[in-house]
C-alpha cells in the first residue's frame, strides 16, 4: 500500500529532528497608524476604503454606491433595508450566480496587506464572496491588527469549516503583466471601517 511505503521511506530518509524556531515577536502598533496603513495597502491593491465614525453611516453610502445594481444581498442583518435585502440560504450555490453585490462583516483585518478574514458562518454560503460581481466588507477599526502573525494569534484554535483572507478585488496580470481587476471573482471591493 502506497501510504505505508511512503511513510516507511520517509522514516528511513528524513534527518534527525530539527526543532521549531521561536515565534516572530508580535508588533504593537497605534490603532490610528494601523488604520492609515490598512487604508494605504487596500487602495494600493484596488480596493475602495471608507472610514466612518459610526456604523450607521455605512448604509447610505452602500445605497448611494450600488443603487443601480439588481441583486444585492447582505449577510449583516443591521444593514438590511428595503434597498438591501437580507441573504437567504439556498443549498445550491449556483443560485447565487446573478448576485451583483454581497455584503459581509469581518472581525479581523490585517494592516500590512489589507486582508480581511471571513469564515463560512459569516459568508452565508462559501461561494458568495467569490461569485458576487462586487464585494462589500464591513470591519470595526478595533479588529485591525498589524500583521499576519497577530492575525493568526487572534484566529488561534478557532473552529471553522472554511475560512479565507480576502485582499482586494479578484485580479490577474497573466496577459503581459497588465493588471486587470475582476478576473473570476468580484470586480470591486469596498471596505467600510467604523470606529
Amino acid at each position: 500500500m502506497s501510504r505505508d511505503k511512503i511513510l516507511a521511506a520517509l522514516r528511513q530518509n528524513q534527518p534527525e529532528l530539527v526543532p521549531l524556531p521561536a515565534a516572530m515577536p508580535l508588533e504593537r502598533v497605534e490603532i490610528l497608524e494601523l488604520q492609515a496603513k490598512f487604508k494605504a495597502m487596500a487602495e494600493g491593491i484596488g480596493s475602495t476604503v471608507h472610514l466612518v465614525d459610526e456604523f450607521a453611516a455605512i448604509h447610505p453610502l452602500i445605497t448611494a454606491r450600488f443603487s443601480g445594481e439588481k441583486r444585492i444581498v447582505s449577510t449583516i442583518k443591521e444593514l438590511v433595508s428595503a434597498g438591501i435585502p437580507a441573504f437567504e440560504f439556498d443549498s445550491d450555490p449556483h443560485s447565487y450566480e446573478d448576485v451583483d453585490v454581497a455584503i459581509f462583516k469581518s472581525n479581523l483585518g490585517v494592516a500590512e496587506n489589507s486582508a480581511l478574514w471571513l469564515t463560512e458562518d459569516q459568508m452565508g454560503i462559501r461561494v458568495l464572496p467569490f461569485i458576487t460581481q462586487h464585494i462589500v466588507m464591513v470591519v470595526p477599526l478595533s479588529a485591525i491588527v498589524p500583521d499576519m502573525h497577530t492575525a493568526y494569534q487572534k484566529i488561534g484554535e478557532a473552529e471553522y469549516d472554511f475560512g479565507t483572507f480576502i485582499a482586494g478585488p479578484s485580479k490577474t496580470a497573466d496577459i503581459e503583466q497588465s493588471l486587470i481587476l475582476g478576473a473570476h471573482g468580484p470586480r470591486s471591493m469596498t471596505i467600510f471601517i467604523y470606529a
Binding site: 502573525h149 493568526y152 472554511f162 478585488p169 496580470a173
Partner: peptide, 29 residues
C-alpha cells in the same frame, strides 16, 4: 496553523511583490 503567518507574508511578496494573494482560502471541511 500559526506558521501560515510566516509563509503567507513571504509567498506573494516573493512571487509578484503583492503584499498577499487576493485569496488565501483555508479548506477544513
Amino acid at each position: 496553523r500559526k506558521h501560515l503567518g510566516v509563509f503567507l507574508r513571504l509567498l506573494a511578496r516573493s512571487a509578484t511583490g503583492q503584499p498577499i494573494t487576493t485569496y488565501s482560502s483555508h479548506f477544513k471541511k
